[in-house]
Amino acid sequence: MSVQDYIRERFFPHIWCPGCGHGTVLNNLVRAVETLGLDKNEIVMVSGIGCSSRIAGYLDFHTLHTLHGRALAFATGVKLSRPELNVIVPMGDGDALAIGGNHFIHAARRNINITAIVMNNRIYGMTGGQFSPLSGEATTATTAPFGTIDPDFDTVALATAAGASYVARTTTYHVQEIRKRIAEAIVHPGFAVVEVMSQCPTYFGRKNKQGDAVEMLRRYKEGTVPLDKQPADPEKIPRGVFVQRERPEYCKRYEHLVQAAMTDGAALT
């Protein structure tokens, strides 16, 4: 199968701006699914609201385009109900970690087998360039004309602390990594988080004098470093797989609970 077999071609060209990294994530998400040879009927994609969330409509899976920040909560219902389905949840940084922060940490805590992709462009694009909890201090946005005074989250550290059993980071420059990491995340039997740093040339790039999409990708290339090389380059943002651990998965645990409940006569009264 080719990339075209996984997308809903009639909606292309897509709504994203020229040079938006989200298209690159879409591109390589499809390649990850193709690599794994998954049946499209076994994939449910649940998204929230924002630029990132439009990704669901473009893909020929079962797609559920929900509410701002709530994608993981909807996805938890889908997954617990039908654990055999692959549930993939693409989110923006505001979607995942501002309005959806509570669902994010609790999905990680449960270690429910869902693949969460945080498409981090450090800005609210759909509403025109407001800062997000991943913008970081001193970035400029329409709601931070004098620079933000808000510190940012570290997605990887947050996901790790909350209990995610697979945590990775890459960028839209490193496309082979996107494919590999997403494929690993889908296969991983637990809550998996892949943060993809994704350029927003229209708002973040322009407001913060980072140049066009090409220039922003160069920054990803030069400003990040593989995890094992980071000690030599502590100023750079590390990429790679930060966590890959075994933890009991929620739906599996629930199966055991059902068996226990069914054998416990008292439970039936």
Partner: peptide, 13 residues
């Protein structure tokens, strides 16, 4: 295939 894989518009094959 770097162009194909990086293209945000899925416009290159």
């Amino acid at each position: 295939k770097q162009c194909e894989q990086r293209c945000p518009d899925l416009a290159i094959q």
